[in-house]
Computed example of a mutant assay.
Amino acid sequence: MKRSLRLAPFALLLPTLASASVVWKGDFETGNLSQWDREQSVASNRLLVVNSPVREGRYALKVTVHQGDDPINASGNRNELLYLDRAAPGTEYFYKWSTLFPKSFPRSSKWALFTQWHHDGNGGSPPLEFYVVDDQINLRMGGQNGKIVWRAPVQREHWNDFILHVKWSPDANTGFVELYHDGKVVLPKTKVATQYSGQRNYLKMGLYRDSSIAPTGIVFHDGFAMATTLADVLPAPVVDATPNPPTPAPPSTNAPGSVSGPSSDAGSPPTADVPRDSDPISQTPPGSDDSPGSDGIVPGDPTTLGTGMPPAGCGASSTGGAPLLTVVGLTVLALLGRRKLVPARAPRSPRR
C-alpha cells in the first residue's frame, strides 16, 4: 500500500505526459469546425457537428452528399474538411479516427471516398486514400495505378476505429504504412511510397464520390488525432468503478479464529488485449470503374501549394478482517492487564 501511495503523485501526471506528443486534434469537441483549416461544401447543412451518434466525447461530424454537390467545380460530388498539415518527407505519424456508415449508406459499384491524404497538385488520384466500392472498404496507395493494400467489408451502424501509422516519403524503400482496424493490426508495416516526388500531402475528410451515385450519402466521423507515438492514439483504458464482490474464502483447515492468508492470485498483473497481426491482403490494383476521381483542391489555390484495468490493490483479502480485529483486541487487553502488575521502572533515555 505504501508503494502505491508513493506512486500516486506520478499517476496524476500521466494524462499530461500522455498527450505530450499529440500534434493536432480534429475531434469536433469544440462544438464546431474551428479545428480544421478549410471546408469544401455547398451548404452549411452538409458538414454538421452533431451530438449523436458519437464515438467519443460529446460531438461528431455528420457529412451529407446529394447528387450534384460540387463545391469546387471539379469531378465527382463532395463535401469535405481540410487540414493542411503537409508533412515533410521523412516524418512519421500516427493518425486515429472513427467512421460510421449508417443503414442508409448506398451500395454502389462506383467509388465513395471518405478519408484521403491528397497531394499538392490538382490532377490525379491521391497517394493515400480510403474509399468504399461494392460494400468494401479499400486502402489504396499510389493513386489510380497504385495498389490496394487492405480491404474489409462495410459494416453499417458500426464505428470503424482506424489507426494509421505512416512514414511519409516518395521513396518506396523509406516510406511505409501500417494499419490498425478495430483494435487489431490488419496491415503489418508495409514499405511503399506515401508521397509523390516533389509534393507533400494534406488531409481531407468527409465524403467524396462518383457523380453518378444518385441516393443521398451520409457518413459520420469522430475523434481524429495526429500524434508521434502509438500510445497517444490508443483508446483510454476503461476503469470499472464498481468494486467486485468479495470472493468467499475456501474452507479453512486451521483452528477457528485463524486469519486467512492472501489468495494465490493477489499479486497477478492485470492482462490486456494485445493487437494481433493478420495475414496481409493480396495487393491487387482496382479496375478503372472503381477508381476515385482525380481532382482534389480548388485549382490555382496558392495556400495549398508547395501533414484497463483498475489499479492493483494492496493485496489484503476482504475476508478474515473480523478474526484479525478480535486477536488485536485481546492482545491489547492482555498488555493493559500486564502493565498493572509490572512494577514501575526508572525512565530510559529516548531513542536516537
Rank of each mutant, 00 (worst) to 15 (best):
V65N: 03
H181M: 12
G300L: 02
G261S: 02
W24I: 00
T303C: 04
T271S: 12
R348G: 08
S21A: 10
T271P: 01
S211P: 03
Q67I: 10
T99F: 05
A312R: 13
L82T: 10
G143F: 08
P286R: 06
R58Q: 15
V166R: 07
V63D: 03
S264L: 11
S318N: 00
R58C: 06
P89C: 04
R209G: 03
A344D: 12
G337D: 14
S268W: 10
V298Y: 05
N79V: 07
P235K: 00
K96A: 12
R86S: 01
L325Q: 06
A152L: 01
H119L: 09
A172S: 15
H119S: 14
P262W: 08
P127Y: 02
P9G: 05
F130V: 13
Q155M: 10
P246Y: 00
W159C: 01
S52L: 04
H66V: 03
L5A: 13
F105A: 08
V154Y: 09
V233R: 02
P15T: 02
G261Q: 01
Q67W: 09
G57A: 06
P302R: 09
N173M: 06
T91E: 15
V332Y: 08
P188W: 07
S258L: 00
D301L: 14
L333R: 04
I163A: 07
R86T: 01
N122V: 14
R107Q: 15
F114N: 03
T194W: 03
P235Y: 06
L5H: 06
T304R: 08
V238Q: 14
E29Y: 10
I297T: 04
T30N: 08
D301Q: 09
N160T: 09
P9K: 09
A322T: 05
P106W: 15
Q116T: 05
L164Y: 12
Y196G: 07
D265L: 11
P275W: 14
A255S: 08
D69H: 02
T99A: 02
P235M: 01
G142V: 00
F10D: 14
P269V: 00
A249K: 01
D70E: 06
S109V: 13
V238I: 14
D273R: 12
T271D: 09
L128K: 07
V328T: 11
N145G: 10
E29N: 13
H118Q: 05
S268Q: 09
L14K: 09
V166H: 03
D289C: 04
A60E: 11
L5G: 09
Q136W: 12
T174P: 02
T307P: 08
S98R: 01
S21Y: 06
E92R: 06
G287T: 07
F105G: 15
N160Q: 15
M226A: 07
A316N: 00
V327A: 12
P126C: 02
V22L: 02
V177T: 10
L113V: 07
E92F: 01
L61Y: 02
R55E: 11
T304Q: 15
A172Q: 11
A11N: 05
